[in-house]
Structure formats: C-alpha cells, structure tokens
Deep mutational scan, measured.
Amino acid sequence: MQRVNMIMAESPGLITICLLGYLLSAECTVFLDHENANKILNRPKRYNSGKLEEFVQGNLERECMEEKCSFEEAREVFENTERTTEFWKQYVDGDQCESNPCLNGGSCKDDINSYECWCPFGFEGKNCELDVTCNIKNGRCEQFCKNSADNKVVCSCTEGYRLAENQKSCEPAVPFPCGRVSVSQTSKLTRAETVFPDVDYVNSTEAETILDNITQSTQSFNDFTRVVGGEDAKPGQFPWQVVLNGKVDAFCGGSIVNEKWIVTAAHCVETGVKITVVAGEHNIEETEHTEQKRNVIRIIPHHNYNAAINKYNHDIALLELDEPLVLNSYVTPICIADKEYTNIFLKFGSGYVSGWGRVFHKGRSALVLQYLRVPLVDRATCLRSTKFTIYNNMFCAGFHEGGRDSCQGDSGGPHVTEVEGTSFLTGIISWGEECAMKGKYGIYTKVSRYVNWIKEKTKLT
C-alpha cells in the first residue's frame, strides 16, 4: 500500500490518463441519441435557420407576430419608411378606419389613436360632414345658397324668414311668412316636400332668348283662358290664391305678392273693366268669414305684352289694390325667389296649380277651390304637342294621358313649387288646347323671366 501511494504521488498524470480511459469505455446513459432527441424537440425550422439574422431580410411573422416588435424591426421587413409607417399605425392600436367614419364618399386613412378623412370636392370637416359648395344638395341650405369668396357655403332665406341657429334652416321672422300653410287642420295635408338634388348652379339658368321682337298675326285659340281631375282644397291650404270678379264672377285667378299687390295673367284683364279681388276665398257660393274683398285701382301688364300681336306672350300683369290686405292664416303671400332659384325650383319637376275653373272641358265651374299636382314636361315634348308657338318664356306641365289639367277660369292662378315646406311661385296658368285632352298640356308663363320686374313694381313704400 505504501508503494502504491508513492507511485500516485510521483505520477499524477498517469492516474488522470487511467481515469479518462475508464470513462470513455463506459456506456453513456444520461444523453439520448440524435434521433430520439429530435422526437422530443420537434420544432419547425425557421426561415433563416442556421444563418445569422443580421444578414437576412426581415420576416413579418418572425419579427412582429411571434413577439412584439419595434418600429426598427418592422422597418427591416418593409425596407421602406412609408410602408412601415402605414403598417405601424394599425399594428400599434388597430384600424381606426374600420367603422368607416368618413361621410359623403370620403376616404379614410388610419393613424395612431386617430384617423384622417380625405374629402371629395365640396366637403370638409373631420368626417367630411361639412358642405362647402352650393353645387351639392344646395349646400344643405333649406332655401338659398351662395358661395363666399373663400368658396364656403353661405345660406340665406327669402323675405319674412331668418336663418336658424344651425345656419342652414329657415324659420319665420314674421307672423305670416310667405308660402307657408298655417291653418292647423290643413298642415297635415301639406304636399310632399321637395329635397334639393345635386345641381350645376353655374349652368342652372337656361341660355334662352326671349323672342321679344317676333311679330306674329293673332292666333285663334280655343278655350285658351284655361282644375280638371283635381281635388277639393281645404280652407287655408292655398292662402296665396285669390279669385278675380268682373263682368262675371271667378273669371280668373291670381296670387298675393304682398298686402297691396296681386300677380295674374295679362290676358285676364281689360282696361276700363272694374275688377274686384277676393282673398281668403274657399267656396265661392258661401260666406265663410275668411274672405277679404278689395278693388283694383291700377293694372300693370308687362311692358312687352301686346294682345294685338299675341294674347299669351309675356302673359303676366300686376294688380294694385285700393287697401292693403290683412295677412292671416287664410290670406298669405306666395314666396318669389330670384331668377336663378325660381328656375331651379321649376326644374324640380312638379308643381301645384289651383283655381275655381271648370271641372271638365266646357263644363261647370268649381264651387270649392280645386288643386292638382302636375309634372313638368320637357321642352321637346311640349313643342311636338301643339302647332302653336311655345315661346321661351312659357313652359308645359300636365299629363300625356289627359284627364287632369287646369281649365277655363283658372287662368292667372299660381303654379307653385314647394321647397322644404315653403311654396314659391314658378308659373302662372296661361293657356292650353281644350282641357285635359290626351297628348295636350297646360301652358304656363315662366315666372323666372319676370321676377325682377315683379319685385321692382310691387315694392311697398
């Protein structure tokens, strides 16, 4: 034993070699072989497995989906700052455009905790909710729209109204504003409101030439003092309507412009014939205590009207009353817009006519005020429907199939267009061939041609 100890002390290297040989010859039971080890760690190889990531292109799944990435790591994937920024906006807080917040056709661009709407022409605001041009839906104005110097929408209202708090709607500024039905039992019968379409306001006024200088022999019209197929109006439903009495009662109609003036057809009036105007009328054979009678003290036909040349060209006249009318729910003026808007309103496509005229061709006159909704007829169809001249200051309205029309005794009465609950004068009943005849239409004086003249002559002093 002493000898062994001496050998170990003198030859430590020998001992180490012996131990190493023993270990190498022993069977290893701690580690699995290569094949079995792979069965336990069965993990798919990654895209760049075996390579240094710093030297390969980034992978979106590896960089940002398996674990949260930084902007720089995302930049490695896209290799483009702009594309990385677009991805980053949604990656950080989701897609803010998912709810489609942009209105009126706006395009949404996502941002971090926010979004941006790219608005089409005519709109602005956070969600493109603000109209900035009158060309689109009248700028959301209830009545009139004008573009300011910086191309912003400025709404306005006709006389007797003021802008509401929203700067879009119009509200009454006087007790009985024009064009409004205020009798409670008839307010439910107000005709369907007309909503502004998209309009090209630059070209809204037709490029028409008034044929002022045409000389033409007097034409022989049949029954051209021209509501057939209409309905009984309720008291106060058309408070701007008046009836004219002269040699015979209810020979023509008219509309209240203001307390002192009536507008009617020029062919209705004769110099030297006494005319009485009755406002607030409903049943011409009954006294309903809503009527107001006034005498006409002055007749002003349009300066281009000449019955000797043509009885229905420039067929418009103004009547001055001896005493002002007292405005109330049964006696209310009709609204008159400017030339541009009167023309736009007419193009809405349908209007209402009213009167006490004959209820059928050569038949009896109506006792109760009649009204009828009539569609506008395109000019080409209008011209083809008659052998008589249709001037540019006239328009056609009615039904091709016949059966409904204005008729004798309705002449001078109103053709009105309702705009968001307020009625505007767009025409004056003038003439036609018979009444409600198939293929024939009622012919009306186009008020847009005469609004400046009306307003100039009827100013209240």
Rank of each mutant, 00 (worst) to 15 (best):
Q2L: 14
R3H: 11
N5H: 14
M6F: 12
I7S: 08
I15Q: 06
T16M: 14
I17T: 06
G21H: 11
C28I: 03
C28K: 04
D33V: 11
H34G: 08
E35R: 10
N36K: 12
A37T: 10
A37K: 00
N38I: 10
N38F: 10
K39D: 09
K39L: 11
R43T: 02
R43G: 01
Y47K: 04
F55T: 14
V56H: 01
G58L: 00
C69P: 00
S70P: 01
F71D: 02
E72V: 06
V77I: 14
V77P: 02
F78G: 03
F78L: 12
T81E: 13
E86T: 10
W88G: 03
K89T: 12
Q90G: 12
Y91W: 04
V92D: 12
G94T: 14
N100M: 08
L103A: 06
N104A: 04
N104M: 04
G105M: 08
G105V: 03
C108F: 02
D110C: 05
D110W: 10
D110G: 12
E116H: 08
C117Q: 02
C117M: 01
W118K: 15
P120W: 04
F123M: 06
E124S: 11
K126R: 13
N127M: 13
C128I: 03
C134S: 03
Q143W: 01
K146F: 12
N147M: 10
S148W: 08
V153P: 11
S156A: 11
S156N: 07
S156T: 13
R162H: 11
L163D: 01
S169K: 08
S169Q: 07
C170E: 01
E171F: 09
E171A: 10
P175L: 09
R180L: 06
S184C: 06
Q185H: 14
T186N: 14
T186S: 06
S187H: 08
L189T: 10
E193V: 15
T194G: 14
Y201H: 11
N203Q: 07
A207Y: 15
I210V: 12
L211A: 15
D212C: 08
D212P: 07
D212F: 12
T218E: 13
D223T: 13
V227W: 15
G229P: 12
G230H: 10
E231C: 10
A233V: 08
K234G: 10
K234L: 10
F238E: 01
F238G: 02
P239K: 01
V242F: 00
L244N: 01
G246C: 04
V248P: 10
D249E: 14
D249I: 06
G254N: 00
S255D: 01
I256E: 01
V257S: 00
V257H: 00
V269A: 10
V269K: 02
V273Y: 08
V273C: 06
K274I: 06
I275Q: 03
T276G: 06
V277Y: 01
V277T: 03
N283R: 11
N283G: 08
I284S: 08
I284N: 08
K293M: 05
R294A: 03
I299K: 08
Y305I: 02
N306A: 07
A308R: 12
N310P: 04
A317T: 04
L318V: 07
E320Q: 06
L321P: 00
L321H: 00
P324N: 05
L325W: 04
N328P: 00
N328E: 02
Y330A: 07
P333E: 02
I336A: 01
T342A: 06
N343F: 03
F348H: 09
G349F: 07
G351L: 01
Y352H: 10
Y352I: 14
S354N: 09
G357P: 07
G357Q: 15
F360Y: 15
H361W: 07
G363F: 06
L367E: 14
Q370T: 07
Q370C: 05
Y371N: 08
R373V: 06
V377E: 02
R379D: 12
A380D: 14
S385A: 13
F388T: 12
I390P: 10
A397Q: 01
F399W: 15
E401R: 13
G403P: 15
R404C: 13
S406A: 08
C407R: 05
Q408Y: 10
Q408F: 14
D410V: 12
D410K: 15
G413K: 06
P414E: 04
P414Q: 15
V416Y: 11
V416I: 09
E418Y: 10
V419P: 00
V419L: 06
V419H: 11
T422I: 11
F424Q: 00
L425T: 01
G427N: 01
I429W: 09
S430C: 05
E433F: 09
C435W: 03
K438M: 09
G439C: 05
K440Y: 08
Y444P: 01
Y444F: 14
T445R: 01
T445K: 01
V447Y: 00
S448D: 11
Y450V: 01
V451H: 04
V451I: 09
N452M: 06
I454M: 06
K455Y: 05
K455P: 01
K457I: 15
T458K: 02
K459T: 15
T461S: 14
